[in-house]
Simulated assay, not measured.
Amino acid sequence: MTKIIRAAGLAAVGWAMTGLAWADVPSVATDITPVHGLVARVMQGVGQPDLVVPPGASPHSHSMRPSEAKALNRADVVFWIGPELTPWLEGPISTLASKAVVVPLLTTEGTQTLVIRDAVQFTLSGDAHHDDDHHDDHGHDEGGHDDHADHHDEDHETHDDHGHAHEAGSLDPHAWLMAENGLAWLDVIADVLAEKDPENAGLYRDNAKAGQAEIIAAAAQIKSDLESVRDKPFVVFHDAYQYFETGFGLPAAGAISLSDASDPSPARIAEIRDVVTDQHVTCVLSEPQFNPGLVATVLDGTDAGTAVVDPLGVGLEPGPGFYTVLLASIANAIADCK
């Protein structure tokens, strides 16, 4: 009996020590599932980040639940895209996570950024902006970062992806859809966590390197999978895929809606129908949370197919493997669109 009690006591001590070890790991909060996935990959085997904007919720207008507010309140580190995507989150971060290290990934050094497009029809010109002095040493090109445009919509829609007015030159916040940014952000995340938690610094950096290898392999497969549709233009429901298009060299022809926070005008719908016909568009990408009737209107009388896709990966399992699965899901939707 004594031995049993002693064993139980040792087990309790072991659990207590485990609890202490976990307690020493930084508490980390993230905004959206793609960022959560990258952070989870870096923290794999050490801890798990919290997610403030749950799957299926709009990043532009989500009302935080008490559990999500608590995640911010206890956070030692917050990784988020930035106010360009979730302007409503800026206030809660400054008040609830006032003592945390806050990292807006969109403006971190080495991130490649693109300007919001306002036009119905996209034109291929310009380059992604990036810092050549940092995070460009991966030696991998997911498809040539040279295909974006900055135009103004003729029907004068003046809402960006947050439903707010924006000025010419505003950054497109959907930067996670460029694999090069995923590669760069893994380094950023590992560096921040290593500084906050030196004891696990080696594991964070090893995880980041392993995650980068996974992204590189996924990007190579995606390039191969998209080869058969590279010359077939497609239309998106709202302009959220510019980074994916640019990174993989795809010919997106235009967007039905300027943003997911505003309905397209009749003039814009008429113009996008002309784009579908004139450019022989073969696919229209819909999104699960939007009115399928608009897509049907655009498709009416054409031979174009349709597929459902989501830039945040609604329906995909959050976690360390999320990011590469998200990129692959978008590629599969485009490649299989009928």
Rank of each mutant, 00 (worst) to 15 (best):
M1I: 01
A7F: 15
A11I: 09
A12C: 06
V13H: 08
L20T: 05
W22I: 02
A23M: 02
T33G: 00
A40F: 03
V42L: 04
V46F: 07
V52E: 02
G56I: 00
S63N: 11
P66R: 08
N73E: 15
V77T: 13
F79E: 03
W80S: 00
W88E: 09
E90Y: 02
P92V: 07
A97H: 05
S98C: 06
A100I: 02
L106T: 01
T111R: 06
D118A: 14
V120Y: 09
H129W: 12
D132N: 07
H138E: 10
H140N: 07
H140F: 15
D141Q: 08
D146I: 08
D147N: 09
H148V: 03
H159I: 06
H162Q: 15
G163I: 04
E167A: 13
H174F: 09
W176A: 01
G182S: 11
L186E: 15
L186I: 11
A190Y: 13
D197M: 14
A201K: 09
G202F: 15
L203W: 07
I215A: 12
D231Y: 05
F234C: 08
S262I: 06
R273L: 05
T277A: 15
V281T: 06
L299Q: 04
G301Q: 11
D303N: 05
V309W: 06
D310L: 02
G313V: 00
L316N: 01
G321K: 06
A328D: 10
I330A: 08
A331L: 09
